Each structure stands twice: as structure tokens, then as C-alpha cells.
Simulated scan of single mutants.
Amino acid sequence: MTRTMIARATPKVGESERLAALVETLAQQVRREAGNIRFEAFSESGGVVVMLEEYRDDAAFEAHLAQPHTKEFNAALAEVATGGASSVTDLVNFAGVKVSAPQIRAVDHAGLTVPDIEAATRFLSDAFGAVTLYDVLPEDGPDMEGEGPQEELGLSPDTRITHMRLVRIGNGPCLELFRMEGGAQSDPARLQDLGLSHLGLYVDDIDAACVAFTAAGGTLLKGPHPLANNEDNDGNAGIYGRAPWGTLFELLTYPGGIDLPTASPAPRWTPHP
């Protein structure tokens, strides 16, 4: 069971900026902890900082408390925070929606095979602001090939994986990029083809997103166009386009909201701003 809490720190007079800087640094460090699920920080009036934290379990939270960066942060609070510390309130989820089997959390990532990971990374960064997290398989490392990968990953004979990279775009699942050599490859999927056909990205300004997509080397189809049926409200729109290597992306926005059917078991997931 995950451990979720809210920590609130009130700055002493003149210490608002320093407190905010300390929390920004802490956030980067905590998010690298193996047991951390999320760490988000918000500000209230008067410079009060509210931290929403979630850890894999109690053991992960205890490991967090033992980290040098956590101890350094708590020591600094003695100087900058009213009362010398933050107040912590544990949270218990009692009205969560059930939209998966008990053992399933959510989509973690999507896989995307590209002809050149460096070029694909540049496109994703220029078009969407994607950031590289790490290389799962460095380009200069040994290739993944042979019977093991063929049987484990369903690769055709003689196919080898030469490069793998994990990137992230905003608040959503990661993209795992693959570069393959040796085996036969199909053309990128169209919307009418079976299987995963496209990646949809929520955007706040669809016109600006279209400009960035094109400037990065993508090719837009006709649009932007209204969304359909339950999604067709004022300001809602979408447009499809292809990346330079052919993968289909959709840019969509729905500030007018979605008309959710009464029988729907949960609201539609939407990335937060």
C-alpha cells in the first residue's frame, strides 16, 4: 500500500525565496529515489509551501527519511521555517475510482521504434519539449541480439537492438525509443491499421503546437478540426500529423470539457498543466 502525505512549511519573515529554492532542490533529489512515486510542490499565500508526496510503501518512506538530502533539507528548515520544521499529514484514499484490476496500476510507457534515436530525440524535444531520462541500451554498448531477445521480445531472426532510450513528455507515460537493425520492418502504422496507431498529446495552445510540430520537421494533416460527439464542445479541437520517420501523432485540446456519460466509471484522465 502506498504512503501518501502532505507536508506544509511556512517561511520565516524574509525567507520565502530560500524556502522555495530548498524545496525545488529537494524535489529533484526525491524524484530520483527508487521508492518515490511523486513529489509535487505548491505555494499558498504568504509563501507557504505545500508538498504532496507519495511513496511505494512504508519502507520506501523510511528510506526517504534516511537519505542525506532529506536530512539536509530538514536541518535547513530549522533556519528558514516557522517552528523550525514542516507539518506532515498522512492521507488515506477513500474515494478513489477503480479502473483496473487490483494488481494493475496504469500505463507506464509506450514503445516506439525509430530509424535514428538521436534524430527522434531532437524532434520530440523540439516539437513537444521531451526530456531524455536515460539510455536503456547505450548506442556504444553491446547490441541485444540472438535467441534470447528473439524469444523474449518476439523479434524476427537476425534482428538486433542497437540503441534504446527512455524519454518523457509532460505528466504522462514515458516513451521507450528503440533502434533496430538486421530484420525486416513494416511501414509506420496508419490510423486504419490494427494495433497501436498513434500517440495523442494534450496541448494548451493548438496553433502554437502546430507551428512547433512543423518547425521540428513533422508534417501535419488537415486541421485543426472539431472533436467528435461527447468531446465536441467550444474550444475543443484536434489535428493529426506524422513525425519525420512516419509515426502518427495527434495534438488535441479540450478546454470546453468532455460530456461524460452518466454510466462512465471514471473521469477521463487529463494531464495536469
Rank of each mutant, 00 (worst) to 15 (best):
L194E: 15
R31L: 07
V92D: 02
S186I: 00
I239Q: 09
E24D: 13
P102D: 09
K12D: 06
M51L: 03
Y55P: 09
Q103S: 10
P255L: 06
P173E: 10
D140L: 04
I206H: 05
V107A: 10
P138F: 05
R268T: 08
I258P: 00
G238H: 03
M144A: 14
T253F: 05
T132G: 09
L124D: 07
P267K: 04
L65W: 11
Q28T: 11
E33L: 02
E17L: 09
Y202N: 05
V13N: 08
M51Y: 02
D126E: 15
A228S: 11
S100P: 04
A63K: 14
T113P: 14
V131T: 15
L137W: 01
R190W: 03
W269Y: 10
T2N: 06
S16I: 05
G14L: 11
E147F: 09
S43G: 14
A208Y: 06
L77W: 02
E44D: 11
I258N: 00
R105Y: 09
D116I: 11
G246C: 06
G129Y: 13
V211M: 08
H64V: 13
A212L: 08
T10E: 14
A20G: 10
R8S: 14
L201A: 02
D204Q: 09
G46V: 08
G241Q: 01
L201Y: 14
D193H: 14
T262F: 12
G111A: 15
Q103E: 12
E139H: 07
V50R: 01
G129R: 12
Q67V: 02
F178G: 11
P255Y: 05
D204Y: 09
V131K: 14
I169C: 00
G14K: 08
A130P: 15
V48N: 00
S125I: 10
D193F: 15
T121L: 02
A266M: 05
N36F: 08
M144N: 11
T113D: 12
R8H: 07
A208M: 04
P102Y: 10
P188L: 01
A189I: 00
T262H: 12
H109E: 13
A266N: 06
G111T: 12
R8M: 13
T219H: 04
M5A: 03
L260K: 06
L221V: 04
Q103C: 06
E151S: 09
E44W: 07
E145C: 12
R242S: 01
I104K: 05
S86M: 11
D126I: 11
P188A: 01
T89A: 08
G83P: 12
E145K: 14
T2A: 08
E33C: 00
P226L: 04
T2Q: 04
D126N: 15
F73M: 05
D58M: 13
V114D: 06
A20R: 11
Q28L: 11
R38M: 07
E250M: 03
A76F: 10
P224T: 07
P11I: 11
A60Q: 13
E17C: 08
N233G: 04
V211E: 12
D90E: 06
D207E: 14
F128G: 13
A127G: 13
R122T: 01
N236H: 07
F39K: 01
A76H: 05
I169M: 01
R160M: 15
L248V: 00
Y55L: 08
A7S: 10
A209V: 05
L153E: 12
Y202H: 10
R8P: 07
A66E: 14
D135N: 07
P273H: 14
G235D: 10
S43K: 07
A243R: 01
